[in-house]
Amino acid sequence: MPFFILRRCLQAVNVLVVMSLLVFAGVYAIGSPLDLLVDPQATTEDLARAAAALGLDQPVWVQYGRFLSRALGGDLGDSFIHGSPAIGLILARLPATLELAVVAMLIAVGLGVPLGLWAGLHPDTVGGRTIMAGSIVGFSLPTFWVGLMLIMVFSVQLGWLPAGGRGPTTELFGLPLSVLSVEGWRHLILPATNLALFKLALIIRLTRSGTREALQQDYVRFARAKGLSTGRVVGVHVLKNILIPVVTVVGMEFGSLVAFSVVTESIFAWPGMGKLLLDSITQLDRPVVLAYLLLIVLLYIVINLVVDLVYALLDPRVGRGGSGR
């Protein structure tokens, strides 16, 4: 197991270096941020001074070399626009996005697993088919449209919930959170639902097909032949087997929720990282884009590692082979 983790860390470093190279080249190719940063009336001297201040007067490989040597020391550079450290800007927005993603994932899992289970157990009933039809709708409707519809219905027409923003937050261990107050939930619930919808559909379908498959297995028949109640057969024998793929997918999807909640955050004016990324890209704020993507890569790597570890806990055939449970 230590060897496994070490190998993962080495892989992670590789991925991070490649990622930073790609982003560096990509942003460089789009254009010079100087054109956006400096007053159009500025003199050539002003431009040169600004370029020198930001290090943009150097050839691109020199710029990358500087970035790399500083990154090794933990400094991902200052934002061109804000002048403050890029990583600080991102971390300030991180709690809002994380909270949104966690709540969305909880909604998706909390509803998706029971609904998928039910649909798998009763495939030919009206309820089972309704759930599956609903999951297709959840898959097909574009997120931005659903977001707009949610605002239309619950904010504009019914007037129950605020249309955007994060509202007041409550501090917990230094993190500003919405989930601790009713008002916070009122702001959180629409964007979280919007973000959860696609994952909900995915988890429903995954759970249903897993359930259908498990029910065909001999071990389910054997469990029934032992005289176990249906609750025990489904709740233990079936559920424990289908949780293995569900955990994998939830892990992967959680990464994408955090990384790409851009659309939902824009629609609901949620002050998260997605909004920051969008602004930074349009302003060619290379350090922020770089820092953001590197952070996301790191997040993915950590999530994958956690998924693998949880996987080993759930499935005794994997990893350490049965000492854990």
């Binding site: 297995q217 071990y219 028949r221 469990a223 032949a225 005289g227 024998h237 049965g322």
Partner: peptide, 25 residues
């Protein structure tokens, strides 16, 4: 049925690789 199954009438299946639940001890 549940009162009889496993108590008065039990069953053994063909493939022992498949009858025990792989994720339960």
């Amino acid at each position: 049925w549940r009162q009889l199954r496993g108590r008065r009438i039990a069953m053994i299946f063909q493939d022992p690789m498949m009858t025990l639940n792989p994720v339960l001890r």
